[in-house]
Nucleic acid binder design. Structure first.
Length: 225
DNA sequence: GCGACAG
DNA sequence: ATCTTGTCGC
């Protein structure tokens, strides 16, 4: 699977911000897909000693949640961690990993925000726009915005707001645990995104997709030490 | 100026 | 992300 939009990644901070502003206009904030059979989960881990990132993608069958394909890629990092420019650090190895996949998913679940971003273009939106595939942003913590504590039962949610604009939701994926911050990535509405995240999180805080890819990268890191 | 700040 | 200390729940 290859990106529809190609652009350089080795940009200055200012160039990266300008590119985000250009690409942000391409984000589709409504449901725009036909059928979702396979869902991909993406996660990236950091190799301690060397200067490497490890990206893992897992593809699950949408109805059974069984893993049907997975790929792990190790790559160098050159972009620093800057809040708001996260995708320029973590997406290059993710794009390489997608290139090796046989199956093309109809939905991608990301560990990182989508619209819940200062320029409304977090990692999930960035990935969705360059591949033109529906994506959902899932953050364990928020980047910005305010929210009311949602009810404590699984499925309860409250909106994440920034200057009166709804940019995402604080969604309780399991009873009595911290909410997950869900936002639109691309080609999906917030309502549909939350519905998918609940369906993909039967036993865990994170969706099974990102949980499985998290396991993959951790196993590889442990095997190397 | 001060605090906050996806991973 | 990773590390650490203390607390609570299973």
């Amino acid at each position: 699977m290859k990106p529809v939009i190609k652009h350089p990644w080795n940009l200055s901070e200012m160039e990266a911000i300008i590119l985000q502003q250009e690409l942000a206009s391409k984000v589709i904030k409504e449901d725009s897909f036909v059928e979702i059979n396979c869902v991909a989960g993406v996660d990236v881990a950091y190799s301690d000693h060397n200067n490497k990132l490890i990206a893992a993608i897992v593809i699950l069958d949408a109805s059974s949640l069984k893993v049907i394909e997975s790929v792990v890629v190790e790559d160098t990092v050159d972009f620093p961690y800057i809040p708001g420019l996260f995708s320029f650090r973590e997406l290059p190895p993710v794009v390489k990993a997608f290139d090796q996949l046989k199956i093309s998913p109809q939905l991608i679940v990301c560990d990182g925000q989508g619209l819940a971003h200062p320029r409304r273009f977090g990692l999930a939106s960035h990935l969705g726009v360059i591949f033109d595939v529906p994506t959902i942003g899932c953050g364990k913590t928020k980047l910005l915005g305010t929210y009311e504590e949602p009810d404590f039962n699984r499925g309860a949610y409250s909106t994440l707001d920034d200057n009166g604009e709804v940019i995402g939701a604080a969604l309780r994926t399991q009873n009595n645990i911290k909410p997950l911050f869900v936002s639109i990535g691309h080609r999906i509405s917030l309502q549909t995104a939350c519905k998918w995240v609940i369906d993909l999180s039967p036993n865990y805080r994170l969706p099974e997709t990102t949980r499985q890819s998290d396991h993959l990268v951790r196993n590889l890191l442990n095997a190397k030490q």
